[in-house]
């Protein structure tokens, strides 16, 4: 009898240890498999499914492109943004996940430019999508709404919005819903690309040309991931991949070469400057084609 109790006790103890070590993840150097790095070629990168989740999580934050635009003194323009009411017409998980990415990038844009009066409409739409995708537990609408209605809390609002996005993405990847996570990330990327190309359409600078041209690298990592989800039975992913292949074709003409920078100034202020530099070459005609193709694909995604 005592043995039976002891056995049960041991089982409970094991369950306890398992519970507590859930997050004690460790990566030894031997375990680290370097992902294909800065491939300058136009060829796709091949991922196995183990590396896939890691790569999906690596893509830009939904506020980064907006931060870059604001830092370059590009004025705010609400014409670039998607109508938040559009989500009412999204009836599939595929469409909702892509839309969630698009709206997250737009929310990031509004946050960075402190447009609190417009944020609430986006929060309402994002709440609807997250509930339909069963991600509502990661989107604390009431707290976000409270922060959005107070101008003093714009930093907290931005942090909370990005964290909500990050938590949803992580949850999807950890729960065998990586296909939706990949769509979210694609939505953010396409919308960010759309924002920057729309700005370039009105006023092209070398800086913007560089930023747009370098997106070739990101698409070369994103496309192989989306291809993993293409199945004969699902024409949505097939269509999305075909559309992005079209964009890849026009981005492939962008030439990127890497040079070593030897003339870096000595710095002692905790700032490290990378001593390798990529040089982007893209003609005005090529840029116009990238802008037009991005515009076309983004409109297909949101409609």
């Amino acid at each position: 009898m005592h043995r039976k109790w002891l056995y049960s006790f041991a089982l409970v103890c094991m369950a306890f240890l398992q519970f507590n070590c859930g997050g004690c993840e460790s990566n030894s150097d031997d375990d680290i498999k370097f992902l294909p790095q800065d491939d300058m070629s136009s060829t796709d990168v091949n991922y196995n499914s183990d590396a896939m989740n890691e790569v999906i999580g690596s893509f830009s934050s939904p506020v980064e492109m907006a931060a870059m635009l604001k830092s370059s003194d590009v004025p705010f323009n609400n014409r670039y943004l998607v109508d938040p009411d559009m989500v009412k017409d999204y009836t599939t998980s595929f469409k909702r996940a892509l839309g969630l990415g698009v709206l997250s990038a737009d929310l990031g844009y509004l946050n960075v430019y402190s447009k609190t009066s417009m944020i609430l409409d986006y929060l309402v739409s994002i709440r609807q999508i997250t509930e339909e995708l069963k991600l509502g537990q990661f989107f604390d609408f009431q707290s976000l709404k409270r922060l959005a209605t107070s101008d003093d809390n714009i930093d907290s609002l931005l942090i909370m919005c990005v964290q909500s996005y990050q938590n949803m993405d992580e949850h999807l990847r950890n729960n065998q819903r990586s296909n939706l996570s990949a769509l979210m990330v694609t939505g953010v990327w396409v919308e960010s690309m759309y924002l920057v190309t729309q700005v370039a359409k009105e006023q092209t600078t070398e800086e913007l040309k560089n930023t747009i041209g370098e997106q070739k690298q990101i698409l070369n990592h994103l496309l192989p991931i989306l291809k993993l989800f293409v199945k004969d039975t699902d024409k949505n992913f097939t269509e999305l991949v075909q559309n992005l292949e079209e964009l890849k074709e026009v981005l492939d003409v962008v030439k990127i070469t890497v040079h070593e920078k030897s003339d870096l100034p000595q710095r002692t202020d905790g700032v490290i400057e990378q001593n390798e530099e990529s040089i982007v070459t893209v003609s005005s005609e090529e840029l116009q084609e990238i802008i037009a193709t991005t515009d076309k694909i983004r409109n297909k995604i949101i409609n």
């Binding site: 070590c21 997050g23 004690c24 993840e25 460790s26 990566n27 030894s28 150097d29 680290i32 992902l35 890691e54 790569v55 999580g57 690596s58 893509f59 830009s60 934050s61 506020v63 980064e64 931060a67 930093d155 931005l158 942090i159 990005v162 964290q163 990050q166 990101i218 990592h221």
Partner: peptide
Amino acid sequence: YLRDFNTKLKRDAADEETGMKWTVV
């Protein structure tokens, strides 16, 4: 703020590698 990376850390043996790594663009 763009994103965060958080991890639990625990070392059971002196030579054991701890923590986590992430990829970032």
